[in-house]
Structure formats: C-alpha cells, structure tokens
Nucleic acid binder design. Structure first.
Length: 305
DNA sequence: ACCCAGGCGGGCG
DNA sequence: CGCCCGCATGGG
C-alpha cells in the first residue's frame, strides 16, 4: 500500500489528494492546494508541511523535501490515514449503486485525521454556514490569531493554527469581527473550556459513545459537530455526522424522500455500513454536494448565457 | 431581492 | 422526548 521509492518518494494506492482536499474537511479549510502544480502546504503545530502530489489511476505519487522526509512522511501518513485498508473499506460500503458510483467518481478520497482542537474550532465555525465561507473565516482566524511560524534563521514563513489557549487572549467581539458571526460566543466558550476544563488530548483512546458525550459538554458542540470531531479529530469510524446534505440524500435514496429523524438515520447507517460508517458518510456527503453544485453551476451558466 | 449554508442552545408542550 | 425559533454573513 505504501512503498518507498529510490528517490525517497512514496506511492500510495487508492489515495487522491484532489478528492480529499475538496471534501470539506479541516485541512480543506486551511491548507493551500494548487491542483495544477500538485502542491500542498499547511502548518502542523509549529512546522510548515509541504509536499507534491500527483494523482494517478494506479496510485498517488508523493514527494517531499528530502531534508526531513521522515518527519513529513510520517505527518502525511497520519493526516491522510494512508494506512487504511481501502479495499476492505470499499468492499464494506459498496452496498448499492449510489455508493458504487460515488466510490468510482471519488476513489481515493480519505478521511483525514486532524488535531482535536483544530477540528473542534473548524466545525464550530461550520454550523449553519457554507464551505466557502468556513474557509474564509478559518483563514482569517489563522491570519489574525495564529502563531508566527519561523524557519531556522528566524524568518517568518507562515502562520499556524491558533491553539485554544491562544484564543483565550482574544474576545468574542474580535471573533465576530473576524467573521464568526453568532458562532463567536461558541468559539470564546470553547476556547476557555478546552483550555481550563477539558483536555482534548486526554480524550484519545476513549470509546466513541463516551468521547461524543465528553465533546458535547462544550457549548456550541451538538450532535453533528461532535460526530465531526470524533471522526476527523479522533478517527472514530463509528461516527456518522448528519448534516443537511447527508440527511436529504439518505431520505431520497433509502426512504422514498420521506422525512426521517436524525436518530432513525443513525440507526439505519449503523446497520447498513457498520464499522466503516464514517467513510460511508464522507462519500455520501461529498458526492451529493459536489454533484449538486455542479448541476447548479451548469444551470446558471445556461440561464445567463 | 430571496434563499441557503457540514447546527446549536433555549424555550415550550 | 420532539418541535420551533433566532442567529450573522457572504454567495448564488
């Protein structure tokens, strides 16, 4: 699955940087990806991670700076879950023609594994919001509240993701000015709570139900956001975040467009996709959203043209 | 102009 | 438990 080649690069089967980056995960909100060049850069804690990717039918080729290739490759392997057994995952979530075509269209899209606080902040900002604007706000947070990242000579090269501790030094009004809107209060509460009351790193290793319960103690983190944090901040594959897109799609595909409660949909997902429901959710979410956006765009082009 | 977005807390019955 | 409401703000 992962092979080290002679020049130090990696080849990874069933991995697509494009589909992963575009699937509205925390990385999407703050990383810088140039599709034409195949370059990705983002800050992980205090270091700037840069890599070049080329998606291919057989595998994705990844090359990094040989200087500290071991460290960067370890970070990429963790962040993109390069160790996942995609054959087994695809086999388990290919339950019907919709899932089969989603896998065909977005093959290689991975669930990412991100820092728990980074994930928490991103998804608090995501509520009742759209992807483009979430990205805008997250990037403002980094620019205005994030730490300066410096190279070996002390020269500033980037800004990093602001820790909860750092954010306690700013006020709700400042978060509002950065575009957080009504979520500004949740951000202020969460930053304080996760700095003084709840150590997110100590939740690692907790079972999914306990993890979710603990996360929901944070004001501004409800059922859906807690599932997002469990999935993308802790790697709990039993988490199945149900947002407006997933809800609509599940109802249309499997319930003849009849309204179902989130609780019923959770039960349905657990029964249908079991241990890999988190992955099933990401393919449902991304394919329904991406195809819908494509339709809207082509419609508006046709109407205005 | 109107509608929507990876929802949540709070108030109500 | 379920239902309903307000919420800030940029883009289609």
């Amino acid at each position: 699955m992962k092979r080290i080649t002679a020049n130090g690069g990696m080849r990874v089967k069933d991995f697509s940087i494009k589909h992963t980056f575009e699937s509205a995960q925390p990385l999407t909100f703050h990383a810088d990806y140039n599709e034409r060049e195949g370059t990705l850069s983002y800050v992980n804690y205090d270091s700037l991670i840069r890599a070049r990717f080329s998606d291919g039918a057989a595998a994705c080729r990844i090359s990094v700076d040989p200087e500290n290739s071991t460290k960067i490759e370890r970070e990429l392997a963790s962040r993109f879950r390069l160790g996942d057994n995609m054959d087994r995952i695809y086999q388990n979530i290919s339950t019907d023609s919709f899932m089969e075509s989603a896998i065909r269209q977005y093959r290689g899209m991975r669930i990412t594994l991100n820092d728990p606080w980074e994930t928490t902040l991103c998804f608090i900002l995501s509520q009742y919001n759209n992807v483009k604007r979430i990205r805008l706000i997250v990037q403002r947070f980094i620019a205005e509240f994030g730490p300066e990242i410096r190279d070996g000579d002390g020269i500033a090269i980037a800004k990093g993701f602001p820790t909860s501790e750092r954010l306690t030094e700013y006020s709700e009004a400042e978060f509002r000015k950065a575009g957080a809107g009504f979520r500004a209060r949740y951000v202020a509460n969460a930053a304080d709570f996760c700095t003084n009351n709840l150590n997110l790193h100590k939740l690692r290793g907790k079972r999914y139900p306990d993890l979710k319960e603990a996360l929901m103690e944070i004001s501004g983190v409800g059922d859906k956001v807690a599932d997002c944090i469990a999935l993308m901040g802790y790697g709990s594959m039993e988490a199945f975040p149900i947002d407006v897109w997933v809800k609509r799609t599940l109802e249309q595909l499997y319930f003849n467009s009849r309204e179902k409660s989130v609780k019923e949909l959770h039960r349905f997902a657990e029964e249908r996709w079991g241990d890999y429901m988190g992955y099933a959710q990401q393919y449902l979410f991304h394919s329904s959203r991406d195809n819908n956006l494509t339709v809207i765009e082509s419609n508006s082009i046709g109407a205005s043209g």
